Simulated scan of single mutants.
Amino acid sequence: MLKRSYLFYIILLITLGIGCAKNNDVKNDNTNTEKNQDNPVLARILKEGFSRNDIVEMKDRYVVQGDIIFYKQEPGQKNGPTTEQARSPYLVAPAYRNINVYLNAGSFSSVNLNSIVDNVIASYNAVGSGIHLNRVYAAGQANIEIVQNSSLQLGICGQAGFPFSNGQPFNNVFISEYTLNYYHLTSTAQLTLLVAHELGHCLGLRHTNWQSQGEGSAIPIPSTPGTDGASVMNGATCGNNWGGFSYYDQIALKALYPVTLGGPDHLNVNESLQTNQLLRSQDGRFILVMQGDGNLVIYYYNVALWSSNTTTGVPGVAVNQGDGNFVVYQNGVARWSSNTTTGVPGIVVMQNDGNLVVYQNGVARWSSNTAGY
């Protein structure tokens, strides 16, 4: 059941392990799969749209579609997994986007991934997203360890998982040397695709062909199609040859992990946004931009969440006035306002939860009601 991943988050997201199983040689044995949806991890998996028939329970984890790992308790957590976030799978948080990758070469006896890992890292970095991968040579320095694991069921080439709820990337890529040798899937092109695919899961990418895989739902990635035959993240890819990231693979990575282009996250009193100026949330996911068409818009990556509905073709300016009102002007005419004129100077903040808020003396007086991301 070769699996690829859907280029998605997040987002969630972000919510993004491989599926490199060898076509239909693997059948899921669900006889021991826990079906109690009250279990928070199982509930999360089902909420993501995966079929119950694709879930296999193991001692410390669930394995979905043969290659995607959901730990019952995330590493470092003492009180079980965090499941209250609305968006799943989770994405890699800004604090962890400089990611160290370690190849445990000593765990392999016949497969050499040394140059392959270097090439995959270089390919990810060449995309130009906000994610940067580094090769390290000590396990203690690693965020992600690539390690041989021949205990995987025959037919499963590799496994990985989605980012953890604390924003760290999934910490392991498991490669089955036994399966690779059994099916003679050891060419450089085949192994490169396998490693790239599994690392994609660690960064939060679902199988691009999730719909044809029978998954009930997924969080789509903006500006990418429902299908992409060239995607590295399609399921059923074990044994396929690496041809580089597809155009939409690259769009997906840059949509999920945009390069922070700067911009403050707030406007102080009497400050303004001129045409094409913006506020950016501290985590880089949300921007408020004063567009050239006169519209003031909040974007989540490149999805519009809210606007002032002032598209007239006339450039405007958004002003945080000294009387506490936040106003969009075009040619000196007020076209929209937050209606927060109290005489108390305020601050306008683009928050990490997606909400744009006008605060006066620490009290929220107006918001865009776009929180929850």
Rank of each mutant, 00 (worst) to 15 (best):
L273N: 02
N309D: 12
L46N: 05
D249Q: 12
S338C: 13
V328N: 15
S110M: 09
N270Q: 13
T260S: 15
L152S: 11
Y257M: 00
G204Q: 01
N240W: 04
G284L: 07
Q274S: 15
G106F: 06
S129G: 05
N355M: 04
N143W: 09
S88C: 15
E177M: 06
G130K: 03
V259Q: 03
L154R: 14
I10K: 14
M350V: 10
N134F: 07
G354F: 01
S246G: 10
Y300L: 13
F164P: 10
I121K: 00
V314C: 12
E145S: 14
L305Q: 12
G161D: 02
S368P: 00
Q141M: 03
G216N: 15
G244M: 07
E177R: 08
N241L: 11
G204L: 07
N143Y: 06
G316R: 04
Y183Q: 05
E198Y: 03
I18K: 13
E177H: 05
G226V: 00
K72C: 03
F245Y: 09
Q73H: 04
G229M: 09
Q37G: 08
V358P: 05
S151C: 03
S151R: 01
S165Y: 00
I251L: 12
Q250P: 02
S307A: 15
T188G: 09
L199F: 08
Y6P: 14
F245M: 14
V303A: 05
N114F: 05
G332S: 05
G158I: 05
T15D: 10
G343E: 09
G216F: 12
A160Y: 07
T192V: 00
A318M: 10
G284Y: 03
T192C: 02
N355D: 04
H184M: 11
L205G: 15
D118G: 08
